[in-house]
């Protein structure tokens, strides 16, 4: 026992030292490692809750990762069937099938809810390069949903950001952000997202069910579920073009 005890102490100290030695940037880098992909395809179910009512939107999505994210999303529920989104970097276009019209979403329209959901177009367009836009600080550790989490705070260092401050609860084991709060410049809480389900896909933990609550709306939330998620499947890059958007 006398030999084991110092070993346990050393192990605890080593663990604690390692834990606290992680900086905010390092935590974010580990998160990105889990989220990085060359390509991703999935089928999505977007459930929009308003009071006691729910509206379901189904979609198919394909995306290319890398420096500039490219994604195409097509809605498949009968009410919105054929409506498509093309995201190329910071640009977003919507294709309305009935009118055969392609509309560029720009300016303040980007802050509108995507297809009436609590997720804005701006949220959908946001790339993962948060470290370029935010100063990241490790502000503590907390238990969230019975999971030990790092709490990191992101303060905007550039003007053009959708949220001036963000707080994330990052699972210490899986490095998945289980909860995120997004604030306005005034300090007002704008949105809260909670991860409802994670899955091990292709050797990485990935959030497959997320709830987003827009605090500016009353009695409203959106649950986004990803099923049939496939990473790094070879993909035709030509799909991410204006030509394919109209097809």
């Amino acid at each position: 026992m006398s030999k084991i005890f110092p070993l346990i102490i050393i192990l605890i100290i080593t663990f604690m030292t390692n834990s606290f030695s992680l900086t905010g940037e390092e935590i974010l880098a580990k998160m990105d490692k889990h989220r990085d992909y060359k390509t991703i395809t999935y089928t999505g179910i977007m459930s929009i809750y308003v009071k006691d009512k729910v509206r379901i939107k189904n979609l198919k999505s394909e995306a290319l990762g890398g420096d500039e994210t490219k994604a195409i999303v097509e809605f498949t529920n009968p009410e919105d069937e054929g409506t498509k989104f093309l995201m190329l970097g910071k640009n977003l276009w919507i294709y309305f099938p009935e009118e055969e019209d392609v509309v560029k979403i720009s300016g303040h329209m980007l802050k509108e809810g995507m297809m009436g959901s609590d997720v804005s177009y701006e949220d959908a367009l946001e790339s993962d390069a948060l470290s370029e836009k935010y100063k990241i600080t490790l502000t503590g550790e907390e238990k969230f949903n019975d999971r030990q989490c790092y709490v990191i705070t992101l303060d905007a260092k550039v003007k053009k950001v959708p949220y001036y401050k963000r707080r994330m609860w990052v699972d210490k084991e899986t490095f998945v952000a289980l909860k995120e709060e997004m604030y306005a410049k005034s300090g007002k809480l704008l949105k809260v997202s909670n991860v409802l389900e994670t899955k091990e896909i292709g050797g990485r933990k990935f959030a497959v069910k997320v709830e987003m609550v827009n605090k500016l709306r009353k009695n409203s939330k959106t649950v986004f579920e990803m099923i049939d998620v496939v990473f790094d499947k070879p993909m035709d890059e030509e799909k991410f073009s204006m030509r394919y958007l109209r097809r």
């Binding site: 303040h108 329209m109 809810g113």
Partner: peptide, 10 residues
């Protein structure tokens, strides 16, 4: 021109 405020007004 188009503009929206707080996802309420368009």
């Amino acid at each position: 021109a188009d503009y929206s405020i707080k996802d309420k007004w368009y």
